[in-house]
């Protein structure tokens, strides 16, 4: 099904998507409509243009492809499914994701992958082609974040305060430089090659965006992991 979103209000567009019985839906001329694909579990959305905030919030399966940039809170509390952005993403991408995958061709803004957590078979993953803003993976409790650093603007691969409050999961940054002021409970180590599950994610990213995987798989990465899953257990005294 094809929906021309030009001039449509968010709610009308979302109602049209929900009402559509077909599996594949193409939305053209998207200009800022919010909450697209919220809590969908079995559709394949293809979006041309720029969707608004909270694209794919509570996504429960299926796929969303965006041919353009996305705004804030993409994949908020996503449970499963896949979001691929052929462009860059705004702030709070993948907030509190519990499962599924987000692939971003370009950069992401601030607070990407905050609170992402793993649960049993659910292992959320975010793969970013370019660089990220500050607060990457704050309070990360599980899952995998990979930053490929293919940006060309010369800025650091991640901003400030990377991994603050991190207590689970892992990050792979394609850089030799340890992020500035990494919190004490986060360990940074150089790995000569990505482990298989992370490499598989990079291959998926390359296949989506038509990039050569060779170089990205052969090089060294910086792996960030928390020292403990109970970082605060010594902090309190019963009163």
């Amino acid at each position: 099904m094809y929906i021309d979103a030009y001039g449509m209000e968010s709610r009308a567009l979302n109602d049209a998507v929900r009402a559509c019985g077909e599996h594949s839906i193409t939305i053209a001329h998207c200009i800022g409509q919010r909450y697209l694909g919220t809590a969908l579990s079995d559709k394949a959305l293809s979006i041309e243009g720029t969707p608004g905030n909270a694209l794919g919030a509570y996504l429960n399966g299926g796929s969303i492809r965006v041919h353009g940039n996305v705004q804030e809170a993409t994949g908020d509390t996503m449970n499963s499914g896949e979001i691929a952005v052929f462009g860059s993403a705004g702030d709070a991408t993948g907030y509190a994701m519990r499962g599924g995958k987000i692939f971003v061709e370009g950069d992401v803004g601030y607070r990407c992958g905050i609170h992402i957590k793993a649960y049993r078979e659910n292992k959320p993953a975010i793969v970013i082609g370019g660089r990220t803003g500050s607060f990457l993976g704050e309070y990360q409790a599980g899952g995998t974040i990979i930053v490929l650093g293919l940006h060309t603007d010369g800025l650091p691969i991640v901003g400030n305060f990377c991994g603050t409050g991190m207590h689970g999961g892992e990050m792979y940054l394609r850089t030799a430089q340890v992020p500035a002021r990494l919190p004490v409970q986060v360990r940074a180590e150089r790995v000569a090659a990505l482990p298989e599950d992370a490499a598989a994610l990079v291959r998926e990213w390359c296949a989506l965006f038509g990039r050569e995987e060779g170089e990205l798989l052969r090089c060294a990465y910086l792996r960030l992991t928390p020292d403990s899953s109970n970082p605060y257990h010594q902090m309190y005294v019963g009163n």
Partner: peptide
Amino acid sequence: MIPQGADAISPAPHHDIYSIEDLRQ
């Protein structure tokens, strides 16, 4: 829906909410 034995941390700020407009979202 979190791993057994690991701390469950739910900080005071919602890091996606800094305004009434964000709350509305």
